[in-house]
Nucleic acid binder design. Sequence first.
RNA 1: GGUCCCAUCGUCUAGUGGCCUAGGACGCUGGCCUCUCACGCCGGAAACACGGGUUCGAAACCCGUUGGGACCA
Length: 492
Amino acid sequence: MSAPDASSPAPSPSVRVRFAPSPTGFLHVGGARTALFNWLFARHHGGKFFLRIEDTDRSRSTDAAIEAILDGLTWLGLDWDAWEKSPGPGPVRQTERLALYQFKARQLLDEGKAYRCYCPAEELDARRKAALARGEVPKYDGRCRAVAEADESRPFALRFKTPQEGETVVDDLVKGRIVFENRQLDDLIILRSDQSPTYNFCVVVDDVDMAITHVIRGDDHLNNTPRQIQLYRALDFPLPRFGHLSMILGSDKARLSKRHGATSVQTYRDMGYLPEALVNYLVRLGWSHGDQEVFTREELIAKFSLDNLTASAAVFSLEKLQWLNATYLKTVEPKSIAPLVQDLLAKRGAGDAASPGRIEEVFLAHRERSKTLVDIADAVMMYVPGQRVIDAEAEKKFLTAPALPALGRVHTLLRDAPFTKDAHEHLFATLMTETGQKMATLAQPLRVALTGRSVSPGIYDVLRLLGKDEALARIESAIRLIEGGSTAHAPS
RNA sequence: GGUCCCAUCGUCUAGUGGCCUAGGACGCUGGCCUCUCACGCCGGAAACACGGGUUCGAAACCCGUUGGGACCA
């Protein structure tokens, strides 16, 4: 593999890759990463990135899942190209191509590269179990290879004549050279007795038909590769390059699954993560470029190379994703944030709680202390009139009798002075001279009175975001609360 | 069970035989800044799974062991 340097990616328009998910659920982060690597590889080389829906297993495939996958990819910004032979603009769907698989299977039969197998499924199953019970490898014995005359009246499957001598070598782009003994492989079924094609066969027929040059997929397919290579040979088509990506694991080093927490891309969207942060996180799981951690999309396209992929599996770390999201939050264009936060607010029935401009204001005050957009949405709600909720701990510590005089003074000064930052700074200076108290002792009770929490942006920012009327109302209610004793919990 | 893959701080990784008393990042942690929190800045603890080779020299190459994972059922 040539490794073009980042400044001048050598265009190789011949690069054609695909992402081929089974539509059985939401877009999994592992699948998203596979798609991402394919996409980056194609974009780096100026090649094509196709999407193919492997929906031949009709019992498990749903249209909703297809929608979810397209939606997830779109959200991540992974656009796919239209395949030249495709009838419509959408992704390629295997169920629309059954005739081709059947035709190709028949062709292999006619060429003597496949044969009819009359063994009933139940019998094969029984033989498999028996072999297992004897401690043997369950492998089809190839008995129907010997059946001479065709009998189309009986139900039969089509089996591929797998070579039994020699070895098949996979020259993998990430794992290196892997050798499989051919005698380990049995004759796989390519077409079931009900005429439905099998997984490995469809993949090869499609990859051939779509002229895929690089098969980049999860290493859970590594063991399928030698038989697929043999199918390529049988179909008389040159091999693509293969690259098998390591898996993403959960914290216990088992393959990442639901029990580890969120696995679907859309869940991360709901949790308030930015797509660029998720992309950046996923790309660094199994790929690196020296010591660099943060990449723009353009940098990724420029710098991506299969050479820097890791062969070992990686554990998913929510902490690092959070950090990346926080760093993106610090630099994103504030205007782009408002609609995303609005969506999150709408999901909790508060879609009209704040205008875009308002969200932007709150965002600017909170971006450096937030990890996700959910944090921002919470912050927006905190300033909505009547929405203050006083934290019990903070109340006990700061809304106490000794704070009363200062709170009263602040209320008076605030009420009578202009509502500007300069005036507020002056107000606190006055207060410090008057009382001899420090800013820290003055600000905390006020902070709790205004926000209900002992943690917030700077006090001047909070005042500005609240506005004069709401600020005064909250101080009044805090004063009443203190005067009424700890039993009275008046709402703001 | 068979086949295959993998193995550097807790985690993601740099490392392509001498630049390694092993670098960066997250997390953890001490300090500074400070109206709180955070941000930022400065510092700290923390890893080459084990055993044999190969070599003047091995984190790196080979073999084995152990451990983890995937696939086949």
